[in-house]
Design a protein around this nucleic acid. Sequence first.
DNA 1: ATTAAAATTAGAATAATTCCATTTTTCTTG
DNA 2: CAAGAAAAATGGAATTATTCTAATTTTAAT
Lengths: 141, 141
Amino acid sequence: MKAKPAKEDIKNTLKNSGVRPTRQRVTVYESILLKRDHPTADEIFTRARKKLPSISFATVYNCLETLTQSSLVKQIVFDRSSARYCPNLSPHAHFKCSESGKIFDLELDKSLVDSIKQSLPDHYSSDNFELTFTGTFNSSN
Amino acid sequence: MKAKPAKEDIKNTLKNSGVRPTRQRVTVYESILLKRDHPTADEIFTRARKKLPSISFATVYNCLETLTQSSLVKQIVFDRSSARYCPNLSPHAHFKCSESGKIFDLELDKSLVDSIKQSLPDHYSSDNFELTFTGTFNSSN
DNA sequence: ATTAAAATTAGAATAATTCCATTTTTCTTG
DNA sequence: CAAGAAAAATGGAATTATTCTAATTTTAAT
């Protein structure tokens, strides 16, 4: 017996995080997972509409808020441009290529992740960090 | 002979970075340096007005853009709230206390800074990074 | 089936920032 | 020092992403 289609998995993921798997939420989450990019709310709205033409922009924002709150996606903000959303839950960094505007996930060694977490002085407590680079990505050379 | 007042220093700093030290720019930069906080454009505008009541909001934004471009200050963005400006040029991290809303600079060991810089895979080049934490700061205990 | 709670919706409102056209200031050159 | 050109500053309008609001629809629980 093959694995169920992604939609079922998505519903379960939502349920497991205590999020009611409404059609809109499933669609929004699916739209984020669709590609390995880091879509803006606007792009997510466009994708979601293809699956569920009646979905509204406000709902997309609501769903993104819910997904972010429940830690299923991460909101990432570069400069002051639109927020982007990332479904990669492993600790990783983000790299923005200032030429193409593309954003890449950069996996980080566990040892580095640990060092970063341990860099917090006494009295500071945090269970997450965001590490971002801006620069250029050059595949040819 | 004592050191000249800060204003002269500021002018020189600007000049050395190839930025024309206009009254507005000096005032804006001074306003950022005034406290060890991480003021928003709005707060900077308020401070600048005290010194130079004729300065406009647009100019504050222009100056901030110029200072950021010339790497004299760093723009830092948490979530989607107003950008904040930081004159601390050493590599460091930022910590936002979600209770008080305050932002703290966290100095980083040189070794950690190096590890972070070295974490970039081939083909990626960047000479800066931004590391941010969100959590709680608790001085009592 | 009924009710209450949660979610969705469209559109208005907001807030931060950017843009624009004009004026002022500064710099350069004669 | 005067004149012209370039850079910067200005006020206000415009933009953009996001949030809010009030009403409707859906869902879950009795």
